[in-house]
Simulated assay, not measured.
Amino acid sequence: MSGAPPRSEALHGTAVSIGGTGVLLLGAPGSGKSDLALRLIDRGALLIADDLVLLGVHGEAIRLSGTGNMTGRMEIRGIGLCGMPHVDNAPFRLAALCDLPPERLPTPEHRRWLGIAVPAVRLAPFEASAPVKLEWALRAVVDGTFTTSKERAFR
């Protein structure tokens, strides 16, 4: 048995693609992942997966995808399962931690999945500004202004 990290992993969360870039929303049940995803989709994002997200290593990067019969469907609390504009997969570039309190002036942090560090931000998902804050954080990742000064091991 080698110490190599696994090549794929399934996580409880919700994933969306914003401009072709994958964002993984993480948190306990009821923490606001799907609510935030719904508002991002209303702003033009595409659903990748709701509830169970597959992370798979492709080359030097991780891609997010859905699993099973939930592809293109999202549970909207109080409404039920609904079809959503969706995409099969996208490169994983940002994690949004929906059940950790955000810091006022945070130092950028990273979490590791499958041996690869991914930028992470803490958000209060029910805040009206949460979708815009997430888009700004993603822009910093894509533009290269999100630094690696506060890397934390996930788990």
Rank of each mutant, 00 (worst) to 15 (best):
M1D: 05
M1T: 14
S2H: 08
A4N: 11
R7M: 11
S8A: 08
S8T: 12
A10S: 10
G13C: 03
T14E: 01
V16I: 10
G20N: 10
T21D: 12
L25S: 10
L26E: 08
L26S: 12
L26D: 00
A28R: 15
S31F: 04
S31K: 09
K33W: 01
S34N: 11
I41T: 07
R43T: 06
G44P: 11
L47H: 05
I48C: 06
I48F: 02
H58S: 12
G59K: 05
G59L: 03
G59P: 09
E60F: 02
E60L: 10
A61N: 12
L64Q: 03
S65N: 02
G66I: 06
N69I: 12
T71W: 00
T71E: 14
R73D: 00
R73A: 01
M74P: 09
M74Y: 05
E75Y: 06
I76L: 15
I76M: 11
I76E: 03
R77P: 02
G78R: 08
G78D: 12
G78F: 10
G80W: 09
L81S: 12
L81W: 13
G83L: 09
H86E: 06
N89K: 07
A90V: 13
P91R: 14
A95E: 01
A95R: 03
A95D: 01
A96T: 07
L97G: 03
C98D: 07
L100P: 00
P101E: 13
P102L: 08
R104F: 09
R104N: 08
L105W: 07
P106A: 07
T107P: 00
H110W: 06
H110M: 07
L114M: 09
G115F: 08
P119E: 02
V121S: 02
L123R: 12
L123G: 03
L123D: 00
A128L: 10
S129K: 10
S129I: 15
S129P: 03
S129Q: 14
A130C: 08
K133R: 15
A137Q: 02
L138I: 05
A140P: 00
V142E: 14
V142S: 02
G144W: 01
F146Y: 15
T148E: 13
T148M: 06
S149P: 00
K150S: 13
K150L: 08
R152F: 02
A153M: 06
F154L: 14
R155E: 13
